[in-house]
Design a binder for these strands. Structure first.
Length: 593
RNA sequence: GCGGUAGUAGCUCAGCUGGAUAGAGCAACGGAUUUCUAAUCCGUGGGUCGGGGGUUCAAGUCCCUCCUACCGUGCCA
């Protein structure tokens, strides 16, 4: 039974085996996918394209495979096999099999253990969030942080070794102006209370003064030159500013319960740029153009003429240089088999050029090029169709966004609680209300972010984000809470080994729920392959829907012990998958809400 | 100019990389509640998948061509 965890994979191998026995060429692919529930659970569509390529009759090809599969008694005891339409092979799992599966893969630990082979032996460096220092985190930083963290959790769950690396922008040209202002206008109290706010204020002040006064520009440039030549005094100030900056950033991460393994910002790579210059020149990839050093890719339609500049005409490095050094460090020091960078879609060109360049550079120097993925996301739009901003035109700060979300959530929790009191139901204690509001508030922001296809822009609307209906975090949290509420009627011992005491699942709602639970593995795999968490969200929403339908139509606590056991078992498995899935999105469940 | 990402129900979005009669949620309308938490469930109506052409057994999905929005395109990151 263990090899049935990944149903699509199992069916794929069985169909391929049958195809080979039937004498089909090895160009045959099973093409397993989830089927429309009308037809079954899974379907194999491979007969159609194969027949087309070989000018054969697809139904005959399909029939020859079905005939062979039918001879496998172990298989036919589990699955109903039918051929239909132009040559689709449909598989419908029998109720006994659903039951066996639920019995075998019980509990989130079991799920995790079984999932751990999907990405085993992978070492993945994930670069996400990566804000610039000396600026407060605002709504523009939200997507990378939330999506990146979820990707990390997904990969780790599937058995990968994950290294969370925050590639902060801490060595940019902004420092000259910041230092100029810092030395003259620092408000120490504010720095203590709100380090990022104060640094941002100083940076803006320095920038403003520079536009008004040539002398400021000159002095700022001198500050930057001192820093880049690693003048001790400038470095000490930089260390101090950076320390405050990272403290401020971490305060925001704490609100989301996120932490990084490394903060290897651009500054970390400053002494490796010489090696990049040298190797790119020696390998013949780099060339001088208009006074700067660049890489062209003649085979590429656009990058044949659009340069990848890694050294400016004044001899200084830029972010291409540090990114190249970063690729090298991640490959050699972390021995990454895969590198993922999560940013805004506007940096697509840069990362395509980075990938092409690094690939050639590593090839010429005999290094192994890890798998590279630039995972990008669209813009969060305001309701006016432009990038999200507050009334003053400034981007909304993340700490304010979360605070408002929690506040709104608390209001709703209190309203619902008052209704409970009015109906004479058990009310939530004050701490429970506050804790629930915190979970609901932050989870709502997270889920709104993750449930969107990341490549698209999306419209941010408070009423949608905090809507407690539809495909939202509260809907899922509520489903989990109802399950736990049922369990509170039992002693822990009553809930053990339910599968052994259960009769066969039989109602439509029980069967539909069981099928949905089995679908988790396929969705997990697809989510990890495409690095698109919204696939998991869609699934969890459907799972919660299947549970709610079941809950409304089938009473769990009933006099018949065997029926009660099987329904409790379904509740347990639903909760396992729900908690596991929500956990991968960074969302904890609640006991009561 | 070149290139990228989008355009699917009134609104917000899915659509598993070419599969069977295009799906959800919200909003609208009709129903279910002596509750294992109704923050729920069941049902109804709603579509020229931006327009046009093409490829094939099969196109929302692929190729061409227009239209619209946002974005990138040599010294910011």
């Amino acid at each position: 039974m263990q090899d049935w965890f990944d149903l699509a994979k199992k069916m794929d191998s069985l169909v391929l085996e049958a195809a080979a026995t039937a004498g089909l060429e090895d160009t045959f692919t099973a093409d397993i996918r989830t089927a429309d529930p009308r037809f079954g659970d899974l379907q194999a569509n491979g007969a159609l394209p194969y027949a087309k390529r070989n000018k054969a009759n697809p139904r005959q090809i399909g029939q020859s495979i079905v005939d062979l599969l039918e001879k496998n008694e172990d298989l036919t005891s589990k699955v109903e096999i039918t051929l239909s339409g132009p040559g689709f092979i449909n598989f419908k799992f029998k109720a006994d099999f659903l039951q066996d599966w639920l019995k075998t893969f019980s509990g989130s630990e079991q799920l995790k253990k079984a999932a751990a082979h999907l990405q085993e032996n992978e070492t993945v460096v994930v670069d996400y969030s990566s804000p610039n220092t000396a600026k407060q985190m605002h709504i523009g930083h939200l997507r990378s942080l939330i999506i990146g963290e979820s990707i990390c959790k997904l990969l780790a769950f599937c058995g990968a070794k994950v290294i969370r690396d925050n590639h902060i922008g801490d060595w940019g040209t902004a420092y000259g102006r910041l230092f100029y202002a810092y030395k003259r206008f620092l408000d120490e109290e504010n720095l203590e209370a709100n380090p990022l706010g104060e640094l941002e204020r100083l940076y803006k002040l320095g920038s403003k003064l520079a536009t008004e006064d040539e002398e400021v520009v000159k002095e700022s440039r001198e500050e930057l030159v001192k820093l880049q030549s690693e003048d001790p005094e400038a470095m000490a100030l930089w260390e101090q500013v950076n320390g405050h900056s990272i403290d401020g950033i971490k305060r925001v991460y704490e609100l989301f319960d996120i932490s990084f393994d490394h903060y290897l910002g651009e500054s970390f790579y400053r002494n490796m740029v010489e090696q990049v210059y040298k190797e790119l020149e020696e390998s013949g990839l780099g060339e001088e153009s208009e006074g700067a050093w660049v890489v062209f890719h003649p085979e590429h339609k656009r990058y044949a003429t659009q340069p990848f500049m890694y050294r400016k005409s004044d001899g200084a490095s830029n972010y291409a240089t540090t990114d190249l050094a970063t690729m090298l460090y991640r490959a050699e020091h972390f021995k990454a088999s895969s590198i993922i960078i999560e940013t805004d879609f506007r940096q697509k060109d840069h990362f395509e050029q980075l990938e092409l360049t690094t690939q050639k550079w590593f090839e010429k120097t005999g290094r192994t090029f890890p798998k590279f993925s630039h995972v990008f996301h669209g813009t969060i739009m305001g309701e006016n169709g432009k990038a999200m901003a507050s009334r003053t035109g400034e981007p909304v700060l993340l700490k304010d966004l979360i605070a408002e979300s929690i506040e709104r959530a608390e209001k709703i929790v209190r309203e619902k609680n008052d209704e409970k009191i009015a109906k004479g139901q058990a009310a939530l204690a004050e701490e429970e209300i506050v804790a629930a509001a915190k979970v609901i508030g932050t989870s709502s922001i997270r889920y709104a972010e993750l449930s969107q296809n990341r490549t698209s822009d999306y419209v941010f609307a408070w009423d949608k984000l905090l809507s407690f209906e539809g495909n939202t975090a509260p809907y899922l949290l509520y489903a989990a809470t109802r399950i736990k509420s049922i369990f509170r009627n039992f002693e822990a011992a009553d809930l053990e080994n339910l599968a052994d005491k259960a009769s066969n699942i039989e109602t439509d709602e029980e069967l539909a729920l069981a099928r949905k639970i089995l679908g988790f593995v396929g969705v997990l795999q697809q989510t990890v392959e495409t690095l698109r968490p919204h696939l998991l969200c869609t699934y969890l929403f459907e799972l919660a829907g299947a549970y709610s339908s079941f809950y409304n139509a089938n009473k769990v606590i009933v006099p018949e012990a065997d029926i009660q056991s099987r329904r409790l078992m379904l509740c347990q498995r639903t909760l396992d998958v729900l908690e596991t899935g929500l956990g991968l999105l960074g969302i904890p469940t609640l006991e009561r809400m």
